[in-house]
C-alpha cells in the first residue's frame, strides 16, 4: 500500500466513524472511548515491535485519567487537561522506563504488571484522596472557554479523539520506518548485534516506551473527560490485558490495527453486554480465541488478505 493510499484510507475511516456517530447518536460515546483506548494501543504496538509485551500499560491510561480528574478540580479546561495529563504520563513513563528497559520478555511484562498493580492498590486504598473504588467524578468541563454540555460535549470529544488518533497513527507510522523504529524491531530479533553496531538498545526501547506512555496519557485524558468518572479499575491488570487484546484483535502489523481493534472491541462489548448481561467477557474471549486461531494477523490482516484475493480473482 502506498503512502497516499494509506492517508486516504485513514481519512475515509475518520469520515466513516463520524458518520456512524451522527447516524447512531448513542454510539458517539462508545466510539470516543474506543478511540481513546486505541491511543494507548499504539504504544502496545510499538513495544510489540521490539518483541516486548507490557501487561501493565493501563497504568499510563489510568495515571493520566486521574491526573485529569485532579487537575479538573482546579482548571476544568479540556485544552489544559489533555497536555497536563499526557505530560504527567510521559514523565512517569520516563522514570519507570529507565528501570524496566533493562528487562526483557517475561520479566519486562511482569514488572510492568507489578507497577500497574501497585498504582491500582494505591488508588483503591487511599480513600481519603481518591475515594477508593467509588472513583472520582469530574466537574463540568470547558473547551476553549465554552462549557461542554450535551451534544456539543459528545462531538467535541469525539472529534478531538479522531484528530489524536490520526495524528498519533501518522507519527507511529513515521517512527516505525525511521532508524529508531527499525532498531526497535532489531531488539526483537538480534539485540546483541545492535550493541555491536554501537546502538544503545536500552535507549531505543526507552524512547519507544516514553512515546507509548505519552500516547496512553492522551488516551487517558480523553477517556476521563468522556466518562467523567475515573475508578481504580482503569489500572487493574485486566485493563492492560484488554489493551494487548485490542492490539492483536486489530492486527499488530499495521497502524490501522489499534483503531480497528479498539472499535471492534468496544462495539462487541456493548452489543454482547446488551445481549447477555453476565457473559460479555465470555463472548469477547471467544472472539479473541477465534481471531488468534484463524486470523493471527488480526482484523487488519484479514481485510488485507480478502482485498488481495479479490485483486487476484
Amino acid at each position: 500500500m502506498t503512502r497516499t493510499q494509506e492517508l486516504l484510507l485513514a481519512l475515509l475511516g475518520a469520515v466513516l466513524l463520524l458518520a456512524l456517530a451522527w447516524a447512531v447518536p448513542w454510539l458517539r460515546f462508545v466510539l470516543t472511548v474506543a478511540l481513546a483506548k486505541s491511543l494507548a494501543v499504539f504504544g502496545i504496538l510499538l513495544l510489540l515491535r521490539a518483541g516486548q509485551v507490557s501487561f501493565g500499560h493501563a497504568l499510563y491510561l489510568a495515571l493520566a485519567a486521574y491526573t485529569a480528574a485532579f487537575t479538573a478540580m482546579l482548571i476544568p479546561e479540556a485544552l489544559i487537561l489533555l497536555p497536563v495529563a499526557a505530560i504527567a504520563s510521559a514523565l512517569v513513563g520516563l522514570v519507570v522506563g529507565l528501570f524496566v528497559v533493562r528487562y526483557r520478555e517475561i520479566f519486562f511484562g511482569m514488572l510492568n504488571l507489578a507497577l500497574s498493580m501497585v498504582f491500582y492498590s494505591l488508588l483503591e486504598k487511599f480513600y481519603s484522596i481518591t475515594h477508593g473504588t467509588d472513583g472520582m467524578r469530574l466537574p463540568p468541563l470547558r473547551f476553549a472557554g465554552i462549557p461542554l454540555e450535551g451534544e456539543f460535549q459528545g462531538w467535541v470529544l469525539l472529534i478531538l479523539a479522531v484528530v489524536l488518533a490520526l495524528g498519533f497513527g501518522a507519527l507511529v507510522r513515521i517512527y516505525l520506518a525511521s532508524p529508531m523504529g527499525q532498531a526497535l524491531a532489531g531488539i526483537k530479533t538480534r539485540e546483541t548485534r545492535l550493541e555491536f553496531l554501537g546502538v544503545p538498545a536500552r535507549r531505543v526501547l526507552l524512547a519507544a516506551y516514553v512515546l507509548a506512555a505519552l500516547m496512553a496519557g492522551c488516551g487517558g485524558a480523553v477517556l476521563a473527560m468522556t466518562t467523567r468518572l475515573v475508578t481504580p479499575a482503569l489500572a487493574y491488570w485486566t485493563a492492560s490485558g484488554e489493551l494487548v487484546f485490542i492490539a492483536i484483535l486489530g492486527g499488530a502489523g499495521s497502524v490501522f490495527g489499534p483503531v480497528i481493534g479498539a472499535v471492534a472491541f468496544e462495539l462487541t462489548r456493548v452489543y454482547a453486554a446488551a445481549l447477555v448481561a453476565d457473559a460479555w467477557q465470555l463472548i469477547l474471549g471467544s472472539v479473541l480465541l477465534l481471531v488468534i486461531l484463524f486470523a493471527p494477523g488480526g482484523l487488519w490482516g484479514m481485510g488485507k488478505a480478502l482485498l488481495s484475493r479479490r485483486k487476484i480473482a
Partner: peptide, 12 residues
Amino acid sequence: ARSGIWSPFAPL
C-alpha cells in the same frame, strides 16, 4: 548506526 543518523522523523 555508523553515520549516527537517528532522527525518528526520516525513514531509514
